Simulated assay, not measured.
Amino acid sequence: MSDTLKDKLIFFGATLGWFAVVVQFVLMMQNRVESLTETTIRFFSYFTILTNCLVALYFSILWYKKPLLLFTRFKKPGFLTATTLYIATVGIVYQFLLRDIWEPTGMQRIVDELLHSIIPTYVLVFWIIYENKKDVSWRAIPNWLLYPLLYLIFILFRGNLSGFYPYPFVDVTELGLEKVLTFSGFLFLAFAIGAIVFVGFGKSIKTDKL
């Protein structure tokens, strides 16, 4: 298929991503019990939100097309793979660990599915079709793991100061530091294995770009 279709898919990906993030922010603000500043910090303390912002920004940069020095790496082989790894993990963790802990309704239900199911699937399909998989380097994997590692350090540090932990499995107050670190270690290992699977699978398949 033509580049015109690819452009449309990129535009739709950016629109879908920003819509989900912005609406989720509005909903959180409408139901906030903390200050505006604290609620905003908490909003961006969720790996789901940060990763969906990354997805929306990625598609926006591709759609803009003009060279932007700060975002040149967004268009290099491997960046899409890393982004797909992150958003796929968001989807998998939610489906298996978080879906049953609450039952959103109305617009919150729609946004919840966008952030945790629809967008991860959309990015995965886009990756299958458009990533230059043969050019993705195994050596990039350690760099990809910095994002979840820095995220963990941030939420543990801030949680220690504020008492707020965005996910129950990293709640040191309830579980204790040892259990949180143990679970985080398994999750970090899952990221590493996922990265290896993405690179290996990508190099083993042949797809024609649309």
Rank of each mutant, 00 (worst) to 15 (best):
I155A: 06
F191W: 04
F157S: 13
P148V: 03
L16M: 15
T39N: 10
L80G: 11
F198A: 10
N52P: 05
R158K: 12
L5S: 04
L187N: 07
G17Q: 03
V55E: 00
K203E: 00
V23W: 09
F201L: 15
Y122E: 05
P67V: 10
S184A: 12
F59W: 02
V125T: 10
G13Q: 02
L146S: 06
L189N: 00
L27T: 11
V197H: 03
Q95E: 14
N132Q: 15
L114M: 13
T105L: 14
I101M: 06
L27I: 15
K75L: 14
L114R: 00
A82Q: 09
D3H: 12
S35T: 10
T83A: 11
G176F: 00
F164N: 02
Y147V: 13
I155T: 12
N160G: 13
L181F: 05
L181Q: 07
L152K: 03
V136Q: 05
D171W: 12
L175V: 03
Q95P: 07
L156Q: 05
P77A: 13
L69M: 14
L70K: 13
A195S: 07
K133F: 10
F43W: 10
G159S: 08
S60M: 00
K203W: 00
G13C: 04
V111S: 01
P77E: 12
A20V: 03
V123F: 09
F59P: 01
Y122F: 11
P168T: 04
F188R: 01
N31C: 11
L145I: 02
T207E: 11
V26I: 15
L80T: 06
A195P: 00
F164S: 00
Y94K: 00
T83H: 07
A14V: 01
T15A: 14
F157T: 15
F169Q: 06
K8Q: 10
N52Y: 01
L16I: 14
F79V: 09
T39Q: 10
D135W: 09
N160A: 14
L9R: 02
K6P: 05
V90D: 03
S137Q: 15
P142C: 06
K179C: 06
P166M: 05
